[in-house]
């Protein structure tokens, strides 16, 4: 099922991308979109809309969804927890806290949201992983440490926002997630993140399967449980942090994409990782397109769409029966 599913998801994503490129208030037709993409003649205005506004946004949302979907599968395996998502180790609260601190100390404009968010989320994740190292990265310790740090950072961020009420709107809007300002340079960074941090994790598919065993069985079968867990969690966390720093916190993709993929291809990671990434990319591109088009003027935060559309679908799939994480 893997190959047909991967082919179907790639074809569906390309088709969706073409639709997303075309739809909008500018009255561009599908034919014009194809011509512009092929470098053939059109008005400068339409060329600008396709190449400068819509295409980077579409690629950014797809790649971000792919990173979140892939990372979700990694987190669920590494933490042996079906409720895990890429934000469980403090990436989102760390990013939000980083932005809040930068704004509070007046560095917001100087360093920019992405740098502040990336710094906050990477430091938070490293602190959580370091605190858990003494327990060799035991899953319960990791998850509870993540939950505790998330609470502390949320409280600290609330306090900072309470003290800087005028900045509250900016942080809130950023944290809800948006691709409206995506640029080619951001697309380049996200693509490099995908190539350098995410795709190499595919080679760890056997170790990820082994992590789903109980720890004693995994260890006795030759898995260095603690170090393998850290080696897959660290790059997935940093990749997620890069996405969050640019486009905010986008919930549910990282949780749902691996679960839906597992329903179709089963839990073996050799078959699971590619569909999780592709399905995550497809869902986020679809959500972002809806966020852009649903309101007659302005945009909805994309995180609202992923949750509003995703949760009912997810509950339906879970209730369809016989679902045991695969």
């Amino acid at each position: 099922m893997k190959k047909p599913l991967v082919a179907i998801l790639i074809a569906a994503s390309l088709l969706l991308a073409l639709v997303a490129l075309t739809l909008g208030p500018s009255g561009i037709t599908v034919g014009e979109t194809v011509h512009i993409l092929l470098g053939q003649g059109s008005t400068a205005n339409k060329h600008y809309i396709i190449w400068r506004l819509r295409l980077p946004r579409i690629i950014a949302s797809f790649l971000t969804g792919a990173i979140l979907g892939f990372s979700g599968a990694i987190f669920q395996a590494a933490l042996r927890n079906p409720m895990a998502d890429p934000f469980i180790l403090g990436v989102s609260s760390g990013a939000s806290f980083g932005v809040a601190v930068a704004l509070a100390v007046g560095l917001g404009a100087l360093v920019g949201f992405p740098i502040a968010a990336l710094t906050g989320s990477v430091i938070t994740t490293l602190v959580i992983l370091a605190l858990s190292v003494r327990q060799k990265g035991a899953t319960t310790t990791l998850i509870l440490t993540g939950v505790a740090i998330n609470y502390i950072l949320s409280a600290a961020m609330t306090l900072l926002m309470f003290m800087n009420k005028e900045q509250y709107q900016r942080i809130l809007y950023w944290s809800m997630g948006s691709f409206s300002t995506a640029t080619w340079s951001e697309v380049t960074v996200i693509a490099l993140t995908m190539v350098v941090l995410i795709i190499p994790l595919s080679a760890s598919h056997r170790s990820l399967d082994m992590l789903l065993l109980d720890e004693s069985s995994g260890r006795a079968a030759g898995l260095s449980v603690g170090s393998v867990r850290l080696m897959v969690l660290l790059p997935a966390s940093i990749a997620t942090a890069v996405c969050v720093s640019y486009f905010g916190v986008i919930g549910f993709i990282g949780l749902m994409a691996p679960h839906v993929s597992r329903l179709i291809v089963g839990p073996k990671h050799q078959r699971l990782l590619a569909p999780s990434a592709l399905f995550g990319g497809f869902l986020l591109l679809l959500s972002d397109t809806l966020a852009r088009l649903l309101l007659p003027s302005g945009e909805l935060p994309v995180g609202v769409i992923t949750s509003l559309a995703g949760v009912p679908l997810f509950i339906y799939l879970l209730r369809r029966g016989r679902y045991r994480y695969g």
Partner: peptide, 26 residues
């Protein structure tokens, strides 16, 4: 060595052969 644990929850729907194949990890 081979080891059979006291508690081994199987929440993930691997086939029997896929589970046995995990013994080849090392």
């Amino acid at each position: 060595i081979g080891f059979v644990a006291q508690h081994h929850l199987h929440e993930y729907a691997f086939t029997a052969r896929e589970v046995v194949a995990m013994g080849r990890y090392a």
